[in-house]
Amino acid sequence: MAAAAAAGAGPEMVRGQVFDVGPRYTNLSYIGEGAYGMVCSAYDNVNKVRVAIKKISPFEHQTYCQRTLREIKILLRFRHENIIGINDIIRAPTIEQMKDVYIVQDLMETDLYKLLKTQHLSNDHICYFLYQILRGLKYIHSANVLHRDLKPSNLLLNTTCDLKICDFGLARVADPDHDHTGFLTEYVATRWYRAPEIMLNSKGYTKSIDIWSVGCILAEMLSNRPIFPGKHYLDQLNHILGILGSPSQEDLNCIINLKARNYLLSLPHKNKVPWNRLFPNADSKALDLLDKMLTFNPHKRIEVEQALAHPYLEQYYDPSDEPIAEAPFKFDMELDDLPKEKLKELIFEETARFQPGYRS
């Protein structure tokens, strides 16, 4: 834990890192770190609560700039109880001085990944967590956004079992017609939660990839272990087919990539493993919904509104309290091709509203 900075004593240090967030945020305490930044909790002297502050230093890398800009653009436009918001952003007053960006968010005690390492969940908890994931996802999908990296560590939890989806750095506007060349190379989302079509096709992607990830998360809540822990690309596919069985001819016809289709045709026939054999203690309604989410063919996979209306979630289902976005989200430009200098300018502009004396 960093010592509390005395008023006016300059930035606090946390594990050798400068955290320049005073005077409003003090009493910093280390939480963890990701690929390009550290997260601390801090005391907000204005709202009198502890908050989470993520320090991001992305400006050396085009990919990190892209992810940072995506996350900020999306989260500043989203407003939903099951999606983490941005409360404040701290950065230098000029673009030349801006080396880091500090993002202030609600402090959540833990995440689903940490929880599943230590606790076996009751059916009631599984049901409530799944409902909140789908409630947040309904809003995301209504904005025409794909999260693309749903996994237990991106689901934040607090002691009252509130759940918030975080990390929109890989999110995209849904565009089933656009052929994202190089899709697989830039697709760094965790393999275990990846839909089979991501490994088999490169053309376009749809909201059904997020539903697949939610199915993987439900299976993990039922058993405290990942359902498809593939060691590499082909191993991942083999794990999936080992449980779902061989795809039907109709399902194979959806695979545009001939090499991928021929690979699947070359494999020995596998039978589907019954879900109640894998999860003998699970609620039968939970397994019915799991089956509809972990469907090989993305066109037959359940959609988020149908999933919310499934009998497993009937005690929570309330369409009048499951809000959607006001308007579909649009990125003005494809960020993939922009140089990091341009992305830095866009991050600077996007964060201006939090600067003292800002006038829109």
Results as ranks from 00 to 15, higher is better:
Ala3His: 03
Ala5Pro: 10
Ala6Asp: 12
Ala7Asp: 12
Ala7Met: 13
Ala9Trp: 01
Pro11Lys: 13
Glu12Thr: 08
Glu12Leu: 10
Val14Leu: 12
Val14Ala: 10
Arg15Phe: 08
Gln17Ile: 09
Phe19Arg: 03
Asp20Val: 13
Tyr25Ala: 02
Thr26Ser: 15
Asn27Tyr: 15
Leu28Gly: 03
Tyr30Trp: 03
Ile31Phe: 15
Ile31Pro: 10
Ile31Ala: 05
Ala35Leu: 06
Tyr36Ile: 15
Cys40Leu: 08
Ala42Trp: 06
Tyr43Ala: 10
Asp44Thr: 05
Asp44Glu: 15
Asn47Phe: 13
Asn47Lys: 15
Lys48Ser: 10
Val49Cys: 12
Val49Asn: 10
Arg50Asp: 12
Val51Ala: 12
Ile53Ala: 10
Ile56Tyr: 12
Phe59Thr: 12
Glu60Asp: 15
Gln62Ser: 13
Thr63Asn: 10
Cys65Asp: 06
Arg67His: 09
Leu69Gln: 14
Arg70Thr: 00
Glu71Arg: 03
Ile72Gly: 01
Ile72Gln: 13
Ile74Tyr: 05
Ile74Pro: 11
Arg77Ala: 07
Arg79Lys: 12
Arg79Met: 09
His80Leu: 15
Glu81Leu: 06
Asn82Tyr: 14
Ile84Gln: 12
Gly85Lys: 13
Asn87Arg: 10
Asp88Trp: 07
Asp88Lys: 00
Asp88Leu: 03
Ile89Arg: 03
Ile89Gly: 02
Ile89Glu: 02
Ile90Cys: 12
Arg91Ser: 15
Arg91Gln: 05
Gln97Ser: 12
Val101Ser: 07
Tyr102Thr: 04
Ile103Lys: 12
Gln105Cys: 05
Glu109Gln: 02
Leu112Pro: 05
Leu112Cys: 07
Tyr113Met: 06
Lys114Thr: 11
Lys114Val: 09
Leu116Asn: 02
Leu116His: 03
Thr118Arg: 12
Gln119Asp: 01
Gln119Met: 07
Leu121Gln: 14
Asn123Trp: 02
Asn123Tyr: 15
Asn123Glu: 08
Ile126Arg: 03
Cys127His: 07
Leu130Asn: 07
Gln132His: 15
Ile133Leu: 12
Ile133Val: 01
Arg135Ala: 05
Arg135Ile: 02
Lys138His: 06
Tyr139Ile: 07
His141Gly: 12
Ala143His: 01
Val145Tyr: 03
His147Thr: 10
His147Pro: 07
His147Arg: 07
Asp149Met: 02
Ser153Leu: 08
Ser153Tyr: 03
Asn154Lys: 12
Leu156Val: 04
Asn158His: 10
Thr160Asn: 05
Cys161Asp: 04
Asp162Tyr: 13
Asp162Glu: 15
Leu163Glu: 02
Phe168Asn: 02
Gly169Cys: 14
Ala171Arg: 09
Ala171Tyr: 00
Val173Ser: 07
Asp177Met: 11
Asp177Gly: 04
Asp179Thr: 10
His180Thr: 05
Thr181Leu: 12
Phe183Asp: 06
Thr185His: 05
Val188Cys: 09
Thr190Gly: 10
Trp192Ser: 11
Trp192Ala: 04
Trp192Leu: 15
Tyr193Ile: 08
Arg194Tyr: 05
Arg194Leu: 10
Ala195Pro: 10
Ala195Lys: 04
Glu197Asp: 15
Leu200His: 06
Asn201Thr: 09
Asn201Gln: 07
Ser202Ala: 10
Ser202Pro: 12
Gly204His: 07
Lys207Cys: 13
Lys207Asn: 09
Ile209Trp: 11
Ile211Cys: 10
Trp212Gly: 11
Val214Arg: 03
Val214Trp: 04
Val214Tyr: 06
Cys216Arg: 04
Cys216Phe: 13
Ile217Val: 00
Leu218Asn: 03
Leu218Tyr: 08
Ala219Gly: 10
Met221Phe: 11
Leu222Ser: 02
Asn224Phe: 10
Pro226Gly: 06
Phe228Gly: 00
Pro229Ala: 06
Leu234Cys: 02
Leu237Arg: 04
His239Glu: 09
His239Gly: 14
Ile240Arg: 01
Leu244Glu: 03
Leu244Arg: 00
Ser246Cys: 13
Ser246His: 04
Pro247Trp: 05
Pro247Gly: 01
Pro247Phe: 02
Pro247Val: 06
Ser248Pro: 12
Gln249Trp: 07
Gln249Asn: 01
Asp251Ile: 01
Ile255Arg: 02
Ile256Pro: 06
Leu258Cys: 10
Ala260Cys: 04
Arg261Asp: 03
Asn262His: 09
Tyr263Gln: 04
Leu264His: 01
Leu265Asp: 10
Leu267Thr: 02
Asn271Gln: 02
Lys272Glu: 00
Val273Tyr: 09
Val273Met: 12
Pro274Val: 11
Arg277Asn: 07
Phe279Cys: 06
Asn281Ile: 15
Ala286Arg: 00
Lys292Leu: 09
Lys292Pro: 07
Met293Cys: 04
Leu294Gln: 13
Thr295His: 05
Phe296Ser: 09
Asn297His: 11
Ile302Asn: 15
Ile302Tyr: 07
Ile302Thr: 00
Ile302Glu: 03
Glu305Val: 14
Gln306Tyr: 02
Leu308Ala: 08
Tyr312Pro: 01
Tyr312Thr: 09
Glu314Leu: 05
Glu314His: 00
Pro319Ile: 01
Ser320Tyr: 14
Pro323Leu: 12
Ala325Asp: 06
Glu334Thr: 00
Asp336Thr: 10
Asp337Trp: 10
Asp337Ala: 12
Lys340Phe: 00
Glu341Tyr: 01
Leu346His: 05
Leu346Pro: 00
Ile347Phe: 15
Ile347Asn: 13
Glu350Arg: 01
Ala352Met: 13
Ala352His: 06
Phe354Arg: 03
Phe354Trp: 07
Pro356Val: 00
Pro356Arg: 11
Pro356Met: 03
Pro356Cys: 03
